[in-house]
Design a protein around this nucleic acid. Structure first.
Lengths: 250, 250
DNA sequence: CGCAGGATTGATTGCATTCAACGACCGTGG
DNA sequence: CCACGGTCGTTGAATGCAATCAATCCTGCG
């Protein structure tokens, strides 16, 4: 292991967010065998059709899931932020039905699938935490079906920005007051929203001109979170974030 | 219990499809406490915002998941056929983030959530079978994001029909050679594909005139399955059906 | 018979796409 | 240091797919 710090700290925090883990559970998670790797943007961690042998845990940087149509059109299905495991979806399924790729350069810890399966079966609380995490991912998939199926371009983008901001905040990776660095090109935004890059560009400019977002290169600010949230028809219920008092700004 | 037959037979068969269950596991499932109910088309089994107390198992008829935008547009997220549990997605999540509704009149067995949680925690094989089932549902959500996000109307509808046909067949509920009875209005098809009812009507007529489907009221036949599959850009990998020889017709 | 829900058809509109070009930024290498 | 190439972002004009609006047609049913 390259560093003294526990690389699974963020993951444990993430898993513990929706289901309490004992100290022993956390220790077992920390002791998972793994290999650390740096991956460049665009690197695949899972390919459709493969039978994954390891489950990568994202330590830094960002990743995404995508599928491609026969015609070559790409749809981004989900975004992943540090602290999330990239492969729970494939843990028990065998052949992968989609691709997982790095959005930016970042570091991952590759854990053998068998090790995750074992810990999930031997430690009910961990198994349950993993199940809950995958269920939340499924909830996000559902919201994306709605987003892409029934919202107009303006709402779609606003919704995507809201989701990303809130998830970053929940993981302690961004202070929404200051906005965040959106690690995506407009082409990737297009693939995530089912639009074209050109149209994404126009909609972003619209949102900016309306004072709903502030842009500085890839940095996105939220001058009027409430209104952006309304435009994006955004309700955070589907993220199943733990209970807490209303956030000041959000 | 109203009838002598085991109402969970189809569910057990379904759960066992992707993960072997012991006789004891099956017996435990069969012994789940439950109440049988007949539900009319349109009846909700879960409502967004509710904390479900029971998990309904669909015994006959069809059901679907849906979400509504603030503007009132509805998106159908998934379809459910007999033998499927309607609420694994909410089993461990608390507040439901979407609605589940009957598509047709049908019969369900309501099982207390706690009973399902208990059996899942006490019987690792059952827990794993439930996990795998929810992962497959998630895989279907992903494919729907792609379908709605990146396919044109013709492909979307063709894809939907292919999926439904294959799932019915896998559950032994339809013989694809003879087609099947599609339990949806064109408006519901529209909500499932992110289109308008009017456009669904036109696309269906196109598919029919091209010889890709045969229609007789709600009955859909497949005069040229291969071509329909191609038009729908359909690959059954994402359904994670158990391995077996290629189907004669499909 | 008449009603109601769903299916069908036509005419028109509009949102997003497509095609094409240009511009801005950045790292690289001469 | 600056020219160069590549990626990404921006803009304009034209096109097109699906939406919208509005009737009309079926068909089962009370």
């Amino acid at each position: 292991m390259a560093d003294s710090d526990n690389p699974f700290e963020a993951l444990i925090c993430r898993l513990g967010r929706n289901h309490t883990l004992s100290a022993a559970d956390c220790a077992a998670l920390s002791a998972l065998p793994h290999k650390l790797r740096w991956l460049d943007a665009g690197t695949y961690t899972v390919r459709e059709g493969d039978v994954p042998q390891v489950c990568s845990v994202l330590l830094s940087g960002f990743a995404f899931r995508q599928k491609i149509t026969g015609g070559g059109a790409r749809q981004i299905i989900a975004l992943h932020i540090p602290g999330e495991a990239l492969d729970f979806q494939n843990l028990f399924l065998g052949i992968s039905d989609h691709n997982v790729q790095m959005l930016t350069r970042g570091r991952v810890a590759d854990v053998p699938i068998a090790a995750f399966q074992q810990i999930a079966m031997e430690r009910p609380a961990v198994g349950r935490a993993i199940l809950v995490t995958t269920l939340i991912e499924a909830s996000i998939f559902r919201e994306w079906v709605l987003n892409v199926g029934r919202r107009d371009s303006r709402s779609r983008l606003a919704h995507l920005l809201c989701e990303f901001a809130l998830r970053l905040e929940a993981q302690g990776l961004a202070d929404p007051d200051r906005g965040f660095e959106l690690p995506m090109t407009q082409e990737q935004l297009a693939d995530a929203t089912g639009l074209t890059p050109v149209h994404v560009n126009r909609v972003l400019k619209t949102l900016e001109s309306e004072g709903l977002i502030a842009r500085n290169r890839r940095h996105i600010g939220f001058p009027d979170w409430r209104r952006l949230r309304d435009v994006g028809d955004f309700s955070q219920r589907y993220l199943h974030l733990p209970e807490r008092e209303e956030h000041g700004v959000f």
